[in-house]
């Protein structure tokens, strides 16, 4: 943005840059703190570390008024549908931070009930290592998301296209075709969604020039 070079009280910029700058410096986080990382996230918002230095002190517990989802803590089988519903309710453009080892990969808990990384089911913009990460790491991730916002990038944007909007069943992917939420998904057999998830992985390989099924 051409702030520094301004003479005669003029600021020259493109509209996209101005909007990106405004968005980056007024992130409204939706804190989804479930476990230990939630305490460190609280610490980041409290007196000593103070997230308002980054324009992010407005914690919005309503997803409809937030544009940054901070998933901090373990996500269980029972919680995942709730998390997906919250993500779905957030208006675009939106960003997602996966805070800590448990949200990013399951961490030390490789058990029957814990989701092994929310990025299997949600587009994640920034990952934070640590169990739990320090507040400084939180700010690092926040600044990474700010950089993305300034450039108008978002992982979520890659997942919603015009084609998807024309097909409601595709655009809101955490709904099944009969408009029920994922509580109703039959978990006893591998679901169609899982199969298509695997297919996406195959597609990626094809794009890189290697046929599916062959080792790279």
């Amino acid at each position: 943005m051409g702030m520094s070079g301004s003479t005669n009280d003029f600021v020259t910029t493109t509209l996209a840059t101005a909007i990106g700058w405004a968005r980056a410096n007024s992130m409204w986080p939706m804190p989804f703190g479930t476990a230990c990382c939630g305490i460190e996230m609280m610490a980041a918002f409290m007196a000593k570390y103070d997230a308002s230095r980054f324009g992010s002190e407005v914690m919005k517990f309503s997803p409809r008024q937030a544009d940054l989802l901070i998933v901090s803590g373990r996500i269980s089988l029972k919680m995942m549908p709730v998390l997906q519903r919250i993500w779905e309710q957030m208006p675009a453009p939106k960003w997602c931070i996966s805070m800590g080892a448990c949200a990013s990969s399951g961490g030390v808990f490789d058990t029957y009930t814990l989701i092994q990384g929310i990025d299997q089911f949600l587009p994640v913009d920034a990952y934070m290592p640590g169990c739990p990460p320090r507040p400084e790491a939180f700010f690092d991730a926040l600044m990474m998301v700010q950089e993305k916002a300034k450039k108008g990038q978002s992982k979520a944007l890659e997942y919603i296209t015009d084609d998807a909007v024309s097909d409601p069943a595709q655009s809101v992917a955490c709904r099944t075709p009969d408009n029920n939420y994922v509580h109703n998904v039959d978990r006893s057999t591998p679901s169609a969604e899982k199969a298509s998830h695997d297919k996406i992985a195959d597609d990626k390989i094809t794009r890189d020039g290697v046929a599916p099924g062959t080792s790279k």
């Binding site: 995942m80 997906q84 992917a173 978990r187 899982k194």
Partner: peptide, 22 residues
């Protein structure tokens, strides 16, 4: 019952990227 479950934790609908342009 196995520690890592019987595949329940991988069975959630994902946010599709099928419409992503190559």
């Amino acid at each position: 019952y196995p520690l890592k479950g019987r595949g329940e934790r991988g069975n959630f609908p994902v946010f599709h990227a099928t419409t992503r342009k190559p």
